[in-house]
């Protein structure tokens, strides 16, 4: 199977504004410290790690919302590491993102229909109303929702709108960054089942960022564990759970509160 993404020695540093002197440049803080991996077409890859591990930064580098400071990212054969914005724009349609907090990623002044239509218009699609209708269908929302505002929806419904906006563009790749961490368990289950179905139906490649290994286990065939900006483990999910290699992976697994009072915490 061909690779959609090839990442080689990816480095990314950001200015540490908390340590910036009054005059002069802020010191650089190295967030990603040389990551190498590939994402084959059609794969569902989980990216897991604690806060500050660099998982969201990695995600933002993959869809080039951030520019790496070293290494290379190849997307479907094209080197996008330092590609300038005009050259990136046609590729942006093919790499979409679903955000963690639907309340801050959906414009509160726009109706759901407009929210889904806007990127379609920007990318020059035709038959936009049909595409919006189809996207709503795909995520299991009734057509009447096109006329609603985000504040009229529940958390799970808002997250469905985020998914509809992403898939309407017929992307190759979707990055989902902690998309269920703000939801109740039952809405979590619904959104994950939906995502699982869409990935299969539309042949998407998915990178799923989460701090929750239980969710990753359910959804992803392969898991990358990040710790302080480095990959400590990158293996098929089943193997990782059966026999975690890195000490940090074991720590993450031990920390999950299993819903079983018989299993006390060490």
């Amino acid at each position: 199977m061909a690779d959609l993404y090839q990442i080689e020695d990816l480095r990314l540093s950001l200015a540490d504004m908390t340590a910036k002197p009054l005059f002069g440049a802020a010191p650089r803080l190295e967030i990603l410290k040389g990551l190498s991996f590939t994402i084959p077409k059609g794969a569902v890859v989980g990216i897991v790690g604690g806060s500050g591990s660099g998982k969201s930064t990695l995600g933002r580098a993959l869809v080039r919302l951030l520019e790496p400071s070293g290494g290379a990212i190849r997307f479907d054969g094209t080197d996008i590491t330092h590609l300038p914005e005009p050259a990136l724009r046609p590729l942006r349609r093919r790499m979409q993102m679903i955000f963690q907090d639907p309340m801050s990623s959906l414009n509160p002044r726009h109706r759901v229909g407009t929210i889904i239509a806007e990127p379609l218009r920007l990318h020059g699609f035709d038959a936009i109303p049909d595409r919006v209708a189809r996207a709503l269908d795909h995520v299991g929302l009734p057509q009447s929702f096109a006329a609603r505002y985000p504040h009229e929806l529940s958390g799970g419904q808002r997250q469905r709108v985020g998914i509809a906006r992403a898939i309407a563009l017929e992307p190759d790749f979707i990055l989902a960054d902690e998309i269920v961490s703000g939801l109740d368990v039952s809405s979590q289950a619904q959104v994950l089942n939906l995502l699982e179905r869409l990935v299969a139906e539309l042949g998407l490649t998915l990178a799923f960022i989460s701090h929750d290994l239980s969710v990753i286990r359910r959804l992803c065939q392969r898991t990358i564990v990040l710790y302080r900006g480095e990959i400590v483990e990158d293996r098929p999910t089943a193997d990782l759970f059966a026999d975690p290699q890195a000490a940090y992976t074991r720590e993450l697994l031990d920390a999950i509160p299993l819903p079983d009072p018989a299993q006390a915490w060490a």
Binding site: V185, S186, D212, S214, R217, R218, L253, P259
Partner: peptide, 20 residues
């Protein structure tokens, strides 16, 4: 019972995450 079935359980991936 439905809430319990919706709770993810990494030791048994087939079981958890059932919508209510």
């Amino acid at each position: 019972a439905a809430l319990l079935a919706a709770t993810p359980k990494y030791t048994d991936p087939a079981a958890g995450l059932q919508p209510v």
